[in-house]
Amino acid sequence: MNLTSKTEGSLLIVSVHEARIDASVAIQFKDRMREETESATGRVVLDLSEVDFIDSSGLGAIVAAMKQLGSKHRLDLSGLNENVDKVFRLTRMDTVFAIHPTLEVALAS
């Protein structure tokens, strides 16, 4: 599960370099998110622009990642393609996360 992160001021950007977040990698994703966000001091943006597909297990892992960050750090999302966005809308998780069209928009918000 290839995740990288970088900081921009107090913001932490985590980028997912995988085509799929699905049931076969959901646990690794959650564990890698914990490692990458350990040093977060403020808002975290999860950039999904390289992700083609998520299933409900992948969605659950993103929700779990937000929970493990705790209430002190917001988790925003950016770069959802049409299919990924559809999964968030169907489950109404689009009402839980702030979703930005691109990372640039997320950084400016």
Binding site: S56, S57, L59, G60, A61, V63, A64, M66, K67, L90, T91, V96
Partner: peptide
């Protein structure tokens, strides 16, 4: 902390 992680 009560957000669902499955059942979708």
């Amino acid at each position: 902390m009560d957000l669902p992680e499955g059942g979708f």
